[in-house]
Structures are given as structure tokens and as C-alpha cells.
Design a protein around this nucleic acid. Structure first.
Lengths: 333, 333
DNA sequence: CTGAAAGCGCTAACAA
DNA sequence: TTGTTAGCGCTTTCAG
């Protein structure tokens, strides 16, 4: 591995000049610059990041810690968005997956602090409120899809409340008044916020909340079709079955489609359906195609990095960045 | 940010002693060690990775480049497995996603070489044969799910041929002789190898290959249910329809299920089905549950890192590591 | 426009 | 068991 000195010797300049060339310093005679670059190419010289970093204190790296990397679009969209934004400045993501273990999380933060990353993202699979987070020694941190119970750290969050409210309002606008809701796992922040959005939309339109129309208890990863089928069956067995069903995610919607098909009901004629997440593998392959609230994974991932690199410098005060979940219109509503 | 010298001053020892404590050198009086550790904690001192690295030349990092990070279990399983193995030695993955751009791939390798990673993994979404790969300046490289046309780099690959062969043999063992096959995208290495496995299994059992039983042209990401439905419909419309269908992936199998249901055919009684990938969100939620060939994403990711960290040191000669795709028995075959 | 000296924070010899 | 002396490869003064 050649060093800057080797290059200097061969190019017959001082190693400082080589340094200038590497760093695109204007103060180098074009002729000299070219000669140096030539030698750099010949020798296959690569400036050592560790040495540069030691002087500049800039690591060009960002830590990205996830609690799970499951096979849903979740973490993937987050990572993809984060990577996309980081790469805009040629910064690299250091990724650690804790599998939910606090000890790993703790250690990952330590290692990242030691590496002097320019910031740390902590992303969770499911929206949740955290009690604690390891000390990052003053480094910027941003939570992705989760937040601190005491809001002591910045967070990028989906607008679960607004999305559910909008979904419900879309149903109302289409004239539906009996709107079923098959929610995600109970007692998660997402489920609670969405339920609130659903209720508020109804209320504002003067429609009483009917507990019988709401089914809860589904978690994406533990999703069992049978459970969603049961919920859909229960809804359709009501004296007054719903004419529209809002589903906590697209997989639930898929199960609802099947149930309705078995019951001979047509979508959206007999029952309108709206999903959540906009998982295209599902939404586009259902018949009719599924209208869904988009969960903006990619955008959120990108926003988190942007926060670390830009916003934080302006104002390191903890803040919540709420990202909209746009309605993707298709043919089921 | 306190340095090793600050710690030394406060603890009233030489900074070398602090260094010893950090590196768990036995040669330190327990009493001294404790005092130093106390000060380290008080000051919130963290050894700077860049400085350590400069001396030791060990980066404790591994580069992981992907051509795509899609929302299938693909890249995720790879990353998860790689991260799992790397973390065993507290090494961190540096991840860059090229989105298929050669310039990004080139630059990513450069940056990783500059960071003196201990090795580079290049993973592709779909199995393919590469013409070129950027110069890694002697660093170990391993390809994941792809290989060089001239086999000049090591690769970790799924046993597509063996899996297809086994799947076909499983059908044969159940007494099926008309076995349909809905393959992945034509002209990909995976599709070709699998087709060969399918043919060879038939041949060995003295059954003539029937082109009419094979449908090709599906790519996971571009998967359109309608296309798979057409293929299934075509197969079932044959004068002698197949009694078993081997599907290139589980989503295709899902579409086949639907088609058969519409035709009033029972699985596996009328037609047996076997999928590929073992995507549990699909396989477990179909009725009956889908038997599938597991695509060992996680294991392959882990193996790739293991190769860089262990095998390569023993023998840096390029080699192919073929990973088995075990049969996951459920109720569709 | 270029160079010499100093030092980033740490570890590796070698002494003491 | 501990301390001293050199650097690792680079950037940053400050001079030329």
C-alpha cells in the first residue's frame, strides 16, 4: 500500500503537494497536479480514510441501527431511503441490526461513537415509544418510526392518525356510513393513533362510533390470514354489515378480499376496501387493485439522514417530524 | 472529547497504561486497572477508532454492496445473515446500494478500499454472471448470488440446479409423471439452471421432456399475477394437464392456487404444488400451506462474511460455494 | 505556488 | 507492572 510520501517521492514534489492534489486545493500548478495524479494512478495510491479522519475529525459515515430487519418492506424502505440520502454526500451507512437486544444496541452505539459517525439513526420495525436510549456523547441522533416517551430525542414518524382519518374520510365521502376497521396489534402506538383518526373522522361527520365495527390484534409479522378472515367474516355477519372496510395493512386487505369473494360480495360495489402500506406486490395483484394509504418508508429514511446532516446543525432541539401517508387511489374504493 | 492522555493525567498513570487497560492487556495491576476504568467512565472517554485503526490497520469493518435492495426477502435476508456473522466479531457492515449503477459500484469500492475494510461482498438481487468487477487492491472479495463469467472471483451461490432437480424428484416420487413448471425470467442463470435440474430429473426417471409443460418469463419484481394465472390456465387447458406444478417462486404459486380454485381443482389431490423461496408470509397463509424450496438468503449472507474472514486467509483462490436449498415440507405436495 | 515542521490519538517496541 | 520513545498517514499552520 503506497503512502502519500511514496507518491511525493516518485512525483518529485513534497508530500504536502500531493495532499493538496488529493483535496482539490486550487493552489497547485495544473502541470504539477497532472503529474501527481498520474503517479497516483500508476501507484494505485488511495488516501487512507483513517488518517484523514484523524486530522479532520470527519468520518463521512452515519450509523444506522435497526431493531429488526424483517422481510416486509419496512426496514428495507428505511435503509434504502437513508442510503440514498447519505450517498448524495458520499457518506456511508454503518448498519447494525440488534434483533431487539438492548445489549447489542448499547454496544452498537458505543462502536459508532468510537468511529465518530456524524449521526445515528435508530429505526424500529413497529412504531413504539422508548423509555431509554444509550448515551451518544453529544452526537446527533434521530429515531425512525419510534419516539422517546419523554420526547427527549428527535423522531421521524408516519402520520398514522392523519392517514387513518383520511382513509375514513375517503370512505365517508363515497357515501359510506358503516365503515369497518380491522386494525393492527392492539396497544401499539400506531394502532392507537389510527383508531383515534378513525373515530375522529366519524365523529366529525356526526356518525357514532360502533365498537362492533372495529377488530384489533394483528401484527404484520405475526399476521395470520385466518385471523383476518375471521375478522372479516365477523364484520360481514353483523345485522348491518359495513359497506366499507379499512384494513391496517395490505395483507389483511388481501384476506378480506378472499373472504368477500367466498361470500359472493363484489369489491367495491358491495363492500369498498382500503388498505395500508401500499405494498405493491399485493395492491397491484389483487382484483380489483387495492387502494391504499402509502407508508412512506423511503421518504422517512431519507428524511432521517437529512435531519442529521442539516436540520440538527440549525437547531438540535428534539423535534417530531411527521411524514404524511399519501392516499394511493386504485379500484377498491 | 477526552483523549487517552486526559485519562492518563487524571488517573495519574502514563497513557500507555491506559492503552493497556483499553486493550485488556493482562499486564496491569488490578488496582490500577480499576482506577483507570473509573476515570474512563467519569470522563466518558471513548477510544477513537480512527487512531486505533491507523496503528493496527484493522478496520473491523466489512463492505457490503448490493445492486438493489428490493422489498422481497432477497437483499434483506442477505444483509441480515451478513450482519449476523459480522457482529459475532463486532465487525460492522458498511452498506452501499448501487441501484445498478456501475459508477456507484466503482466509487463504493474505492471508498471501501480507502476505509481499509477487511473484505467486500457484492450481492445481486437476481442471480447473474458479471463481466467485470472494480479493482479491490488485493482486498478479499466475495460475490453473493452472482459470479464472474470467468470465475475470477469467489462466489456464494444457491444450488438452483439441485433444488429444481430435487423439487422435480419429489413430484416424481409422489407418482406424478406430468409435471408442469412455471419458471422465472428466461435467460437468467437461475432460470437456466433450474430448467436443467427439472429436465435432468425427468430424464433420469425415463420421462420425456414436454415443452408444453414449461412456462417461462417471470421475474420476481416484475411479477404480475395475471401472467402467472395465464400460465396456470394454459397448463390446465392441455389435453393432458399436469398433476403437479413446480413454481419458480411462491408468488407464482399463489396465483396458481387461485387459478386452480376457480377451476374447482383441489390441492394437492387434483394438482400438487411446490413453490420456491419459502416466503413464509405466502407459504403459511395459503390453504393448504405451500411446500417450497427454501432460498437460503440468511445462510448465504452469513457464509459470504465467513468466507472473507476465514476461508480467504487459508486459500485466496477463487472458488464457488454452492449452498443447498432445503425442501420445506408442508401440505401442497 | 510550494515546503517544513508539528501533531491528530493511538499502539508497538523497548526500557526501566 | 509501568513508562518512554517512535511513529502510523495524513492535514494544518506558517514560512518561503
Amino acid at each position: 500500500m503506497p503512502t502519500i510520501k511514496d507518491v511525493a517521492r516518485v512525483a518529485d514534489v513534497s508530500f504536502k503537494t500531493v495532499s493538496r492534489v488529493i483535496n482539490n486545493d486550487k493552489q497547485v500548478k495544473p502541470q504539477t497536479r497532472e503529474r501527481v495524479q498520474e503517479v497516483i494512478r500508476e501507484l494505485g495510491y488511495r488516501p487512507k480514510h483513517a488518517a484523514q479522519m484523524m486530522r479532520t475529525q470527519r468520518s463521512q459515515s452515519i450509523g444506522f441501527i435497526t431493531d429488526q430487519v424483517a422481510s416486509t418492506p419496512y426496514a428495507v424502505g428505511f435503509i434504502k431511503g437513508a442510503q440514498d440520502r447519505a450517498w448524495m454526500e458520499e457518506k456511508i451507512l454503518l448498519i447494525v441490526n440488534t434483533e431487539g437486544e438492548t445489549a447489542v444496541q448499547q454496544r452498537a452505539v458505543e462502536l459508532m461513537v468510537a468511529r465518530q459517525v456524524e449521526g445515528i439513526v435508530y429505526a424500529t420495525m413497529y412504531r413504539q415509544a422508548l423509555d431509554t436510549f444509550p448515551d451518544t456523547a453529544g452526537l446527533p441522533v434521530v429515531l425512525l418510526n419510534c419516539s422517546m416517551k419523554d420526547d427527549s430525542l428527535s423522531a421521524v414518524l408516519p402520520d398514522d392518525y392523519g392517514a387513518a382519518r383520511q382513509a375514513t374520510e375517503l370512505c365517508l365521502q363515497k357515501g359510506h356510513t358503516r365503515i369497518g376497521y380491522i386494525n393492527l396489534l392492539d396497544k401499539t402506538v400506531a394502532a392507537e393513533e389510527r383508531l383515534a383518526g378513525y373515530r375522529d373522522a366519524l365523529e366529525q361527520h356526526g356518525i357514532a362510533f360502533q365498537p362492533e365495527l372495529v377488530h384489533i390484534g394483528y401484527l404484520t409479522l405475526m399476521f395470520k390470514k385466518s385471523v383476518a378472515v375471521e375478522a372479516a367474516t365477523a364484520l360481514m355477519s353483523l345485522a348491518q354489515p359495513p359497506t366499507a372496510i379499512f384494513c391496517g395493512n395490505d395483507h389483511i386487505a388481501m384476506a378480506v378480499y378472499e373472504t368477500l369473494k367466498d361470500l359472493g360480495k363484489k369489491i367495491p360495489h358491495d363492500v369498498a376496501i382500503i388498505g395500508f402500506d401500499d405494498e405493491q406486490l399485493v395492491t397491484l395483484n389483487l382484483t380489483p387493485t387495492l387502494s391504499s394509504m402509502d407508508f412512506p418508508f423511503f421518504t422517512m429514511g431519507r428524511r432521517a439522514i437529512h435531519y442529521l446532516l442539516e436540520d440538527w446543525k440549525q437547531d438540535p432541539t428534539p423535534q417530531q417530524i411527521i411524514m404524511p401517508c399519501p392516499y394511493i387511489e386504485r379500484n377498491s374504493l
